[in-house]
Design a binder for these strands. Structure first.
Lengths: 347, 347
DNA sequence: TGCTGACCTTGGAACGATCAAGGCGATCCC
DNA sequence: GGGATCGCCTTGATCGTTCCAAGGTCAGCA
């Protein structure tokens, strides 16, 4: 029953009870109440019980602002989200945010979202940092280099990155990432195991670290079986139409029996080409996407897709945060997690 | 230039400057600095300039915790997100969260996300409320009744609901919602204008207020032209396969030339049925979904879909929040926004 | 009985901001 | 010229918590 008595209700509506109120009711001092909350071990059992009873009676909860002021910490983790844009992988971000919020809660943290000027990758951080509004940041979107990380490191701001420091492998900050190459390797190997020999790759342009990483898993798997990759790869924009065009060209020129793609979006393009040509995905040509998006789950025969373990990413990130914010601060090595393969109709 | 001088850097890394530091540097008192920040009008121009210069020199930003403690407000808005679950409309929520974060920023608020026990619709609110961690809540998920709203109202907690108080139209709290009926009316009327006469409805079970609302727009549009609705409606679970089965039955029994659906998920089911029967969506049979999800944008001919104006919803919600938190608090009437129709290949 | 030490408890100060009230020239008006 | 008024700035108190160092209590022991 969380409803409480009318008396308690009135109390909450007026002015929330303070430590002093609880202390008075329990017949002890403020500090004792504080200890009951933060260091229960220091109290005699009967005193503790009495204080807890008073806390419960009054519906007391420590005032966050006062506690933050005194302890110089907010138990808040800031995370910047990029402006909403159509058609990109924000579904992944959504899943990640959910996981992060839930994992953080278990660790006693809340997640503060903020937006920034899209032109300036570090805007928004500055203010939160200087006003000591958050204890740390979770930095995402490390796709091209990572200006935020450098900026935050200069300021000694605690943060954990979701994404490797591609351009600076020796960076000193903690990070957690998903091994994209392992994912595409997994997908490619699965296809090889099921008899495919000519497996094409459709990925992103070369300036994307993540894209090249995912591509490397595909080529690695083929090379491991002594198969060539020449002529089987295409690098395009991350759009459905690009995927469609690229797959049409590859089908004509290289006759692959399967496609592994850097994203579900590209894979959707492949499916369109197959539909146009009267080819049945999964039977005539296999297709594997990346990210296990909503689309992959809903599209016609079901799109097999590499799934990032975002729940685990969140857990590792929170662990790293706890290390960073501990006394003394501890920064462990980067963590690389292996994705899984969500098998569906197209493979 | 947000980098700053090395001196400023060192300062930030050690202990952030306080009001007193700025005051000393500018040769004024603390209160004057506070006024420079919060009530610049009270200062003489030259004094103001001097203080602002000192603020800039030191890289000062008011300590949030101290300010929160004194003013009893955090400039934080809490929003509970439900546990991640597969295949539901969390894409809509994602879009909404983005808009909310950006709009809140302009109003000087940040968004605090939290999770709660899935079993208990009010868990999580309690703690944040009593510890005065947030100034107000944004409540979503008001689909079936709205226990949170009642609970929060009892406690006099400021909040704005995204969703009407269906079960209690006279509820006293502010709310913002999207007129689902107007959306399906829009879709249905569009189809009618393009020559369709027999337009079927596939919606949710009757216990969903939102579902019935959306359904009413469809029937209203048909009745407005003197057309019958009998035998043209189906109410099922919100899954692709339900949509597929329902549309197959409707095609057999009522021979509609168009489908309006309560969700994109259901519409995807319709598309599957059409594909199975060799019917071309958009040419042979028109299909309209609801929510304008990623899926609608990516699926083959493009799914026409009712699009909720979530950016506007966010704007209205923030307006309502500002009213609630103003002095004196002002609570306006509920706001109902009209969705638009995202036209694509299936219509 | 008086002392020691272990263990709880206590009051005062501090965190950094804002609120309320007061000081202090200069100006105004009769 | 003197008192009231105004504009601008300063001072002291306060928000609710935790830290600090000192104080109290009580059992154990000589």
């Amino acid at each position: 029953m969380s409803a409480g008595t009318p008396g308690r209700l009135a109390r909450v509506a007026a002015t929330p009870p303070t430590l002093a109120d609880v202390a008075e009711r329990a017949g002890v001092s403020r500090q004792t109440v504080s200890n009951a909350v933060n260091n229960p071990d220091l109290l005699r059992a009967d005193t503790l019980a009495r204080v807890l009873q008073a806390i419960d009676d009054l519906g007391y909860s420590p005032n966050r602002a006062a506690r933050n002021l005194r302890t110089r910490s907010s138990h808040l983790v800031g995370m910047r989200i990029r402006p909403a844009q159509e058609g990109t992988a924000n579904a992944t971000m959504d899943r990640f945010v959910h996981s992060l919020v839930e994992t953080s809660r278990e660790a006693g943290y809340h997640v503060l979202l903020f937006a920034g000027d899209p032109e300036d990758p570090v805007s928004g951080y500055d203010d939160l940092l200087r006003s000591t509004a958050v204890d740390a940041f979770v930095v995402t979107d490390t796709y091209l280099g990572n200006p935020q990380a450098t900026w935050l490191e200069e300021r000694r701001a605690p943060f954990v990155a979701f994404g490797r420091p591609w351009d600076n492998p020796a960076a000193g900050h903690p990070w957690v990432d998903v091994d994209g190459a392992a994912g595409t390797d997994l997908a490619t190997s699965y296809l090889l195991d099921h008899g495919h020999q000519r497996i094409a790759w459709i990925g992103w342009r070369k300036d994307s670290w993540i894209g090249e990483d995912r591509r490397s898993g595909w080529s690695r798997a083929l090379h491991a079986r002594g198969l060539p990759t020449t002529g089987l790869a295409s690098r395009v924009e991350d759009t459905v139409s690009s995927g469609k065009e690229a797959s049409a060209v590859l089908l004509d020129e290289a006759e692959p029996t399967a496609f592994v793609c850097a994203s579900d979006t590209l894979a959707m393009g492949v499916l369109r080409t197959l539909a146009e040509r009267g080819l049945t995905p999964g039977r005539d040509v296999a297709v594997v996407g990346f990210d296990d998006s909503q689309v992959a789950q809903v599209v016609s025969p079901g799109l097999t897709s590499v799934r990032q373990p975002l729940e685990d990413v969140a857990v590792e990130i929170v662990k790293a945060l706890q290390g960073l914010l501990g006394h003394p601060p501890a920064v462990g090595p980067g963590v690389l997690l292996r994705p899984t393969l969500a098998l569906r109709g197209t493979s």
